[in-house]
Amino acid sequence: MYSKMMMYRGEAQEVDVREQLLEQYYMEIFRYCYGILRNRQDAEDATQEVFLKALESPQLAEIDHKSAWLYKIAYRHCINRAKRNKLLQFIPFIESAKEDTTSIEEDFELQTILQQLKVEERALIVLRIVEDKSFDEIAIILSITAATARKRYERLKGKVQKIIKRGAFE
C-alpha cells in the first residue's frame, strides 16, 4: 500500500525514485553488506533483499536521508542474516569466502582478522574505514549516539591491534 504522496506523484515518478535509488546506492550498499558478511554470494543476496524491502516501502518517497535509511536497513538485514545462520558447531572451521571471491584478490590475512570480529563490529569498521562515514552518520545508522560510536570504534581499533599483535594468522 502506497502513501498518499506516492499516489499523487503517480507511477512514472515512482519508477524514477526507485531507479534513482538503485543507481545511486546499490554499489555502496553491496560493499557494506560484503564488509559485514565477508561472502560475495551472501552480500549479493543481502543487497537484493535490502533493496526489495526498501523499494516496497510505502515511506520511500517521504524519506529525506535515503542513504542513512538504506544503511540502516542493510545493517539490520546483514546482522540478522549472519546471526540466523550462526550455528554452534562441532566442526571447528571458519568457512571463508574463497569460493565466492573469484574476482577479488585473496587476502587471507585481512580475512582472518575480520573473521575474529563480531558482525556488529565489522559493520562499524566498514562504515568508518570503507564508507568514510562521520561518527554522526554512523550514529544514525546504528541507532546509537555519536559519542558511543566513537568509543566503540576506538575500542575496536584496540581489538584489531591486539589480533595483529597476537598474529593468529601467521
Binding site: 558478511l37 554470494q41 551472501d42 533483499e49 549472519a82 558447531q89 571447528p92 571458519i94
Partner: peptide, 12 residues
Amino acid sequence: KIKIAPSLVMLF
C-alpha cells in the same frame, strides 16, 4: 529478486 540461495554461513 533473482536468487535467494539458502546459503549456510557458518560463523564460529
